[in-house]
């Protein structure tokens, strides 16, 4: 489903964020990427969203080379990818409902679909009571759940979660991971980066360990080992 073919990213100051990374992610997989800060995890994820361009190598989504897509095609691709970030990245002037509705509007869904799906997904992440709250009125854990709801609303093929538990307490961390697991069980590919040993060890899924822009280990049922 996703294939990194010898991808390198070298920043202008000759600092190599990624060097010759080759990685394959199959459909319905749950892949955790671990590594120290600066190991290249976030750069790797940004490549999938075309937020960053590789200096050399290619990134394929199914059979499409992501970085040779036209703008219009890129928008379509992004609608098939759900994203969750450490800093939530919610639209501050929109309520929970509107944040999720925006993602649906962007992919051209009708008002009827939005009215029926948004409350449903908020219920799924346990936020039915906060439907009209603005992000500033939500706790970190609640914000992250809104972000997850937004990421899954368009039934994406893949969810990218960049340290989603970085700002959360242990209880919220556990809940967020459980939600991601459930999403994966329903057939969505999940790529997760994290620093959290407990999260990795409790998952018992594939773990890719990165070090200095390279893949150091790739274990089928890995544990956190840094």
């Amino acid at each position: 489903m996703l294939y990194f073919d010898k991808v390198s990213k070298i920043y202008p100051d000759d600092c190599a964020a990624l060097s010759e990374v080759t990685l394959r992610v199959s459909p319905k997989e749950f892949v955790s990427i671990v590594g120290h800060s600066g190991a290249g995890k976030t750069t790797l994820l940004k490549m999938i969203l075309a937020e960053e361009r590789p200096t050399s190598g290619q990134v394929f989504f199914e059979s499409a080379d992501i970085h040779s897509l036209k703008k219009q095609e890129m928008n379509h691709l992004r609608r098939r990818i759900g994203t969750v970030f450490q800093d939530f990245r919610l639209l501050p002037n929109k309520t929970s409902y509107e944040n999720i509705a925006f993602a649906m509007e962007a992919s051209g869904r009708t008002d009827e679909e939005i009215e029926s799906d948004v409350p449903h997904v908020l219920e799924l992440v346990g936020l039915s009571k906060k439907i009209w709250s603005f992000p500033r009125e939500l706790s970190a854990g609640e914000k992250q759940r809104v972000a997850i709801a937004r990421a899954i609303i368009n039934q994406p093929d893949i969810i990218i979660a960049d340290e989603p538990t970085g700002n959360l307490d242990p209880i919220n961390t556990h809940e967020v991971v459980q939600i991601l697991k459930r999403i994966n069980d329903l057939g969505t590919t999940v790529i997760l980066t994290t620093h959290n040993k407990g999260v990795i060890d409790s998952l018992g899924r594939r773990v890719v360990t990165m070090e200095k822009g390279r893949i150091a280990r790739d274990d089928k049922e890995g544990r956190y080992s840094l």
Binding site: L49, E51, K71, Q72, N75, H76, L77, R78, R79, I81, T83, R89, L90, L91, P92, N93, F102, A103, E105, A106, S107, R150, N154
Partner: peptide, 14 residues
């Protein structure tokens, strides 16, 4: 906000 809108796949016009 604009970058978030881009990332959820909203078109430039939208």
């Amino acid at each position: 906000e604009i970058s978030v809108m881009r990332l959820v796949g909203a078109s430039n016009k939208y």
